[in-house]
């Protein structure tokens, strides 16, 4: 435990007194380190690549093209009159961010082991940092989305401001899952290899390319609950509803939101419980 007082800094560590509560105040005290690491990651990710930020655009565009062919042209998914590209890009923007955070979190602490072994800082900064870096890609995908809105001359619904709330939910859930994954990979390195698979599978188990109603109409009831335990299921559906007015908000969507919140809070506590052993295990 670290006690910060206004004038002099006092560090007290007692083997028998370990607070299981995440220390938010300490996290705030290390904000400069957080900002610098985030800046570093963004710089390293986009500096010295020929296309730079264009890479952030390429991924959602490629996904859009593939999904557009399969779900839009071949399967002709019912989008309630919304152009398919616009329908899909809303989901893709969010999913791109979520999958980025998951993939980056997998190897995050092992990737930072040089620093972790030599310097103390609240380790929560590591997954937090990954979730923040992903915002760049999210922003680029949202710009692509805005462009398609203009292209199809579609005006967002009057309740479009709710979208911000859903975006907030997406960030919290992504961070929550990211925290869980980064904490688990410390002990279970195999998880690093499982995550890309989960992400790949998740794209089809989430209403990105098709409306959630497809899942509701075809799945037996107990599987529907299971489907909506994925926080992205309800959040993407909600995000799309607030911008395009399609789909419906129901109890199942609320389940998704609660699931996201639950993962975030438990993630914080689980991370706290393994935090002190990180340097011994990496």
């Amino acid at each position: 435990m670290n006690t910060l007082t206004t004038k002099t800094l006092r560090t007290v560590v007692d083997a028998r007194k370990w607070s299981p509560v995440p220390d938010v105040r300490e996290l705030f005290a290390y904000r400069d380190l957080f900002l610098t690491l985030t800046y570093r990651d963004i710089r390293v990710r986009y500096a010295q690549t020929m296309l730079g930020l264009t890479w952030a655009l390429l991924q959602p565009v490629a996904t859009l093209v593939v999904l557009g062919l399969v779900f839009g042209r071949v399967m002709r998914v019912d989008t309630q009159g919304v152009p398919y590209a616009l329908f899909a890009v809303v989901g893709i923007a969010v999913w791109t961010y979520f999958s980025f955070v998951l993939k980056e979190s997998g190897g995050s602490i092992i990737g930072a082991q040089d620093v972790v072994r030599k310097i103390y800082f609240p380790r929560l900064i590591i997954p937090l940092n990954k979730a923040t870096v992903g915002l760049v890609d999210l922003f680029v995908a949202l710009v692509l989305m805005a462009f398609l809105f203009i292209h199809y001359r579609v005006v967002p619904t009057s309740h479009a401001l709710y979208a911000l709330l859903f975006l907030g939910g997406v960030m919290v859930s992504a961070l929550g899952v990211g925290i869980w994954i980064s904490a688990l990979t410390i002990r279970f390195r195999d998880l690093q290899h499982v995550v890309p698979f989960l992400v790949q599978f998740g794209l089809f188990a989430t209403p990105v390319a098709y409306p959630a109603s497809v899942a509701v109409n075809t799945l037996p009831e107990y599987l529907q609950y299971f489907y909506f335990l994925n926080p992205m299921a309800g959040l993407i559906e909600g995000f799309r509803w607030s911008l395009l007015g399609v789909g419906e908000w129901n109890g199942l969507c609320t389940l998704s939101v609660l699931s996201g919140l639950f993962l975030f809070v438990t993630g914080l506590f689980y991370f706290r419980s393994v935090e002190r052993t990180i340097a011994d295990l990496v």
Partner: peptide, 27 residues
């Protein structure tokens, strides 16, 4: 003492701003 690992027993107290230099050029 630099809080990188957590003790199994005992306690310590450091009064003042602390920096630990276990390596130059970390990060």
């Amino acid at each position: 003492l630099s809080r990188i690992t957590y003790p199994t027993a005992g306690r310590f107290e450091i009064n003042g701003r602390m920096s630990s230099l276990l390596e130059v050029g970390t990060g």
